[in-house]
Design a protein around this nucleic acid. Sequence first.
DNA 1: TAGAGCCTGGACAACGTTGTCAAGAGCGGG
DNA 2: CCCGCTCTTGACAACGTTGTCCAGGCTCTA
Lengths: 351, 351
Amino acid sequence: MTDRAATPRTPQQPRYGTRPTMKDVAARAGVGLKTVSRVVNGEPGVTADTERRVREAIGALGFRRNDSARILRKGRTASIGLVLEDLADPFYAPLNRAVEEVARDHGALLFNGSSAENADRERELALALCARRVDGLIVIPAGHDHRYLEPEIAAGVATVFVDRPAGRIDADAVLSDNFGGARDGVAHLVAHGHRRIGFIGDRPTVHTATERLRGYHAALDAAGLPADDSRISLGPTTPERVAAEAQRMLTGPHPVTALFTGNNRVTATAVRVLARHPRPVALVGFDDLELADLLSPAVTVVAQDAARLGRTAAELLFRRLDGAGEQPRQVVLPTRLIARGSGELPPADTP
Amino acid sequence: MTDRAATPRTPQQPRYGTRPTMKDVAARAGVGLKTVSRVVNGEPGVTADTERRVREAIGALGFRRNDSARILRKGRTASIGLVLEDLADPFYAPLNRAVEEVARDHGALLFNGSSAENADRERELALALCARRVDGLIVIPAGHDHRYLEPEIAAGVATVFVDRPAGRIDADAVLSDNFGGARDGVAHLVAHGHRRIGFIGDRPTVHTATERLRGYHAALDAAGLPADDSRISLGPTTPERVAAEAQRMLTGPHPVTALFTGNNRVTATAVRVLARHPRPVALVGFDDLELADLLSPAVTVVAQDAARLGRTAAELLFRRLDGAGEQPRQVVLPTRLIARGSGELPPADTP
DNA sequence: TAGAGCCTGGACAACGTTGTCAAGAGCGGG
DNA sequence: CCCGCTCTTGACAACGTTGTCCAGGCTCTA
């Protein structure tokens, strides 16, 4: 006697309505189970009359195939997972959308979740998705050790990292040219006469932050300018910290005449600080902002193409799923300097 | 002879690595299948020594439970689906995140996808999610007929609509006070002396657009001001159309002295048009914008709390899943007028 | 020491689907 | 008229898990 033998069609949880199965459809249509399966999946070998009877039964019962069972049987789930830092961050929204579009083109559904910049949460989420047997995983890493994914990758879960490379494993990654973008942005300021340029970026544990800082140094080096640690600040991108650091760099005996800000959140805060500052200060920010062109001065930015990042990663993922078994590769996408005014301000006279 | 009997542990698709199952773990640990299940699920009735042996085997084989099979057996999937208009729209990003947080608190994973304002695509996506047997569905409707969801809801898929009500079925919905918000925004302009106020909104098929238009009319009525159709424009929110309509309203013999814009996209375009306009024109927009406070003049908005919208909907969904079987209800959340400057400009003299 | 009771562990069916295989019907050609 | 062919159809096992139930070993008490 099993758990359901006594009351054949009454589910254990009564509030969860009972759903018809192929068996029910078959019984009602007076055909075999497999025939229903054939009709549902559009397989050949069913006469028009039989098909009609089956379709009638399907309609009458409101049957919908249970894809969980299908997945179990077939092995592939036609779903992929996206683990990103924060679904609410405007930078990641287009990336998310781009991944979704590609998934849709390949008939796959998309799971997603935020790691909230927390390595444990990233891990927990990624593994939960693997337990659901997603076919592939796109991860914007929060942590720096992704060895926990090794068994999954070995088991066939295609995995692509975006925006930041994987830690301690060899895996596909799609990145922006953070180094080159930052170098170009800072060089732009240098070209407009600035010699004391501040850099405010994300915490040094974030790969993109250090890459952008490298670009900053490279631009200064190329111009023969000295780097001064007091003009460099890496840390949390909370408005409080960023505003305080900006204020600090703007005052003192040798204030900066220009700021390079390491991401969209930092830039937004910097714009607020500069708006209240008496002296004009040049600004170039990494990441584009909505309405950046309408501020005065309009904000010059180094823009990355978030949608393209997402699209490229997803396409690479599906190529892997289709059997492309080459070595893991890193794809680096270019950034684009958009000069709008704030980066073209000349150095202001300082007191 | 079945499909796998000949080569017991070689999957049909060779590129998809073989994964160990509980059976494999049991064999390796020298215990029964059910004992492994007990260990994996933390069920009591396993001695410390047996548990250790099982855990060792799990580690050695890199076993991870197949949740697809678990789902099939248990009935509940611990996942919910979110169908929204556009994952990339900054307005929906915080909503998405809020839903995800609540889902996480309830141990559920989140599927999501964009309908791209297309009713067919909404339907296709929602039904695909139902086929995956999500426990619940949160939908930002694109279409106006949701009867297709009736069998699903009857079968126990908890369903909550957000931002716009469901069409032709009685279902839970969480909405913003679009009518009241628009009325307050327009009244704000009236209070600052405006008598010719333009309204540019989304297409009349979008519920929020017509509600906001109702609010516009209500505010004019309350002030005893006549409504003039030439100052009202509903349609696609493409920059081209919005810019053209704004221009049209700003010129001619009786130009508007103020604009009320029906959503974030319209507002952004209107700001661009007004920035180039010789005469100051007051502006109040529905939906807050990032950096709105930094524009000059700063943009006065009627803000909705997208995160709260999402959170409320998700909490309602999980209450339903926990068995709250009351009548469907509509929850209306308040909006908030944020005066920043652009709405407080007095009417400019017109030629 | 025997009987009762508890604890641990395993055999088995079932969740709803799909792949394999075989059986029966219908039909044409030798 | 029968053989063999094609075409349609259905029976059955299996995917990997969990729930039920039973068996055997152990402890405890009388």
